[in-house]
Design a protein around this nucleic acid. Structure first.
Length: 425
RNA sequence: GGAGAGGUGCCGGAGUGGUUAACGGAGCAGUUUGCUAAACUGUCAACGCAGAAAUGUGUUGCGGGGGUUCGAAUCCCCCUCUCUCCGCCA
């Protein structure tokens, strides 16, 4: 959520930013500034009335204790009148505050100055590429064939139990999941992140704070009876650890890592995108989150991208880093890097991680602040990244490492899997 | 799910209708100091108003929301969470 005071003082910057984000309802900006000024006037009026009412009430008390009942009764009437005014002014103020907020939450975050114009994913900018794209043997097949051939994942069985997009992992396929999760967590902990296991269902307030509501309401599964949402990413509960918290500056950055399953409705997806593990409703992910000082958050963003790059290098996967253009970034993000691995049998790049700086967009919603050396309070910056999401990593590992007599497990993972190759049993 | 007891600031904790959320402790900042300790002073937040700023000042907040009253932490209603006991249960 943007801050009205910022919008009012930096209207041109705001408008330019919103355009870059491909946001259409530009008129909201002027409306908001206008409404907020009205809000402040109402607040001022209310304060004045309340101040008078308080003063009179105190006098009434004093007069009563002195036994001057008649004088007190006169003042009582005055106070009662003011009370009536308080009520109506308070109602107006509440209405205006709600209206400001209602409009304000519709505005997406402003992009960082370095973010390029553009609307579609094709306009994202490649900033780094690493690794060798493997040459596969003649009989090489995509991962959806490999998972059946080696009996690793049963798509049909998952469909029977839940529906499309809920894979059932089996035997070495299941072990591989656990190995990857363990590997990612160990790497995160070694990088100074504190591990947490958060709740997987969250309430409305939590979903709102990180920006899932109201923007992505249809993307989350809901437990309607209890008004809870299944988390689409651990980002949601983990960042909310710090909701309504004032950190000390010395406690920054706060670093947390969490494994969690993620649940996404993925309404509107179809075709080759959903084949096999490319897009599923339930998947596993290790997420890293940092709360950082505004002056250091972009250095931290780079550090987080480096961390994810390190994971991909250790897994020996060819990958590239894309800096998203304004129009392709999420609602809440100020700058996002996507990391994509090359899936050799499908011959396409698959997004496996998204690392973002949200600046104060989330922290303003959740009142996540820090106190500086002078005791002043400021909004902190929030960042998060996948490190990593499993399904597409598995897809790429299987496809890229397939040989005529089995699938080779990368060196870094072998101590976790306990096997160095997946061969037909 | 049923019954009872509770929810006050960073923590402990007083406060059952009348200006100030007493008191104690922690942390932080400042003063003092050769250094440390001690002592002293200050220190909750949100939103207004004035000011270039430092700062000053007003309002609100005692789990959340309503109500009674000139005046509510205090009285009434609803909700919620925690604890204890019972029931059910991995």
């Amino acid at each position: 959520m943007l801050q009205v005071s910022f919008i009012a003082e930096n209207k041109d910057v705001t408008l330019a930013g919103l355009r870059k984000k491909n946001f259409k309802e530009i008129a909201l900006v002027d409306e908001l500034v206008e409404m907020d000024s009205e809000r402040r006037q109402l607040q001022h009026r209310l304060n004045t009335i309340q101040s008078d009412a308080n003063r009179i009430s105190k006098e009434v008390g004093k007069l009563f204790s002195e036994g001057k009942k008649q004088e007190a009764d006169v003042l009582k009437q005055q106070s009662a009148d003011l009370k009536e005014q308080t009520k109506t002014t308070q109602e107006e103020l509440d209405k205006m505050e709600a209206l400001v907020r209602e409009k304000l939450v519709l505005l997406p975050n402003l992009p960082h100055a370095s973010v390029s114009d553009g609307i579609t994913p094709e306009e994202n900018v490649k900033v780094f590429e690493s690794g060798v794209i493997p040459t596969l043997h003649d009989k090489a097949v995509p991962h959806w064939d490999l998972i059946t051939q080696y009996d690793l994942i049963d798509i049909e069985l998952g469909t029977k139990i839940s529906g499309a997009g809920f894979p059932l992992y089996k035997k070495r396929g299941a072990k591989l999941q656990r190995a990857l999760i363990q590997f990612f967590l160990d790497e995160a902990i070694n990088a100074g992140y504190e591990e947490v296991i958060p709740p997987y269902l969250v309430n409305e307030e939590t979903a709102f704070a990180t920006g899932q509501l109201p923007d992505k309401e249809g993307q989350m599964y809901e437990a309607k009876l209890d008004k809870l949402y299944l988390i689409p990413t651990a980002e949601v509960p983990v960042t909310n650890i710090f909701r309504d918290v004032i950190l000390e500056e010395k406690d920054l950055p706060a670093k947390r890592a969490a494994y969690s399953p993620c649940f996404r409705r993925e309404a509107g997806s179809y075709g080759k995108d959903v084949r096999g593990l490319n897009r599923v409703h339930q998947f596993d992910k290790v997420e890293i989150v940092q709360i950082q000082h505004p002056e250091k958050s972009y250095a931290t963003l780079e550090e987080m991208v480096e961390h994810v790059k390190g994971l991909l290098t250790k897994l020996e996967l060819p990958y590239r880093v894309m800096k998203l253009c304004g129009g392709d970034m999420s609602f809440a993000s100020a700058l996002t890097y996507d990391l994509e691995v090359y899936s050799a049998a499908q011959k396409r790049w698959l997004e496996v991680s998204s690392v973002s700086n949200f600046e104060t967009f989330q922290s303003n919603r959740m009142k996540l602040r820090f106190r500086d050396k002078n005791g002043k309070i400021h909004l902190a910056h929030t960042l998060n990244g996948s490190a990593l999401a499993l399904p597409r990593i598995v897809a790429a590992l299987l496809e890229n490492n397939q040989t005529p007599d089995g699938i080779i497990i990368p060196e870094a993972l072998r101590s976790y899997t306990g096997f160095d190759k997946i061969a037909v049993l």
